Amino acid sequence: MLSTKNLLLVPQLFCVAALFYSCSGADSKTPAKNNSTNDSTKTIAAEEKDLFKPVDSAKYFELQKYLANGDTTGKWPVKKDVLPKDGAILPFNRIVAFYGNLYSKKMGALGEYAPKDMWRLLNAEVAKWNKADSTIKSIPAVHYIATVASGTPGKDGNYINRMPDKQIDSALTIAKMHNAIVFLDVQVALSNLKAELPRLEKYLKMPHVHLGIDPEFSMKTGARPGSKIGTYDAVDVNYATEYLAKLVKENNLPAKILVVHRFTQGMVTNYQNFKLRKEVQIVMHMDGWGEPELKKGTYRNHLYKEPVQFVGFKIFYKNDLKKAPNRLMTPQELLKLTPKPVYIQYQ
Score class of each variant (00 low, 15 high):
30 T>D: 11
30 T>N: 10
30 T>W: 04
31 P>W: 08
31 P>S: 13
32 A>D: 12
33 K>F: 11
34 N>E: 14
35 N>G: 15
35 N>K: 07
36 S>E: 14
36 S>V: 07
37 T>Q: 13
39 D>Q: 06
40 S>T: 14
41 T>S: 15
46 A>V: 05
49 K>M: 12
49 K>Q: 13
50 D>S: 14
50 D>W: 10
51 L>M: 10
52 F>S: 02
53 K>D: 15
56 D>C: 08
59 K>A: 15
60 Y>P: 02
63 L>M: 07
66 Y>T: 01
67 L>V: 14
68 A>S: 14
70 G>H: 08
72 T>Y: 04
72 T>S: 15
74 G>L: 02
77 P>K: 07
77 P>W: 05
78 V>G: 00
80 K>W: 01
80 K>D: 11
83 L>P: 01
85 K>A: 07
85 K>L: 07
88 A>Y: 01
88 A>V: 01
88 A>M: 05
89 I>C: 12
90 L>I: 08
90 L>V: 03
91 P>W: 02
95 I>G: 00
95 I>D: 05
97 A>Y: 00
97 A>G: 09
97 A>F: 02
98 F>T: 04
99 Y>G: 00
100 G>E: 02
103 Y>F: 12
104 S>I: 02
105 K>N: 15
106 K>Y: 13
107 M>L: 12
109 A>M: 12
109 A>I: 07
114 A>C: 08
115 P>E: 08
117 D>V: 13
118 M>A: 15
118 M>F: 11
121 L>P: 05
121 L>Y: 10
122 L>T: 02
123 N>Y: 03
124 A>E: 13
124 A>W: 09
125 E>W: 12
126 V>F: 02
127 A>W: 07
132 A>P: 00
132 A>K: 04
134 S>C: 04
136 I>A: 06
137 K>E: 11
138 S>A: 14
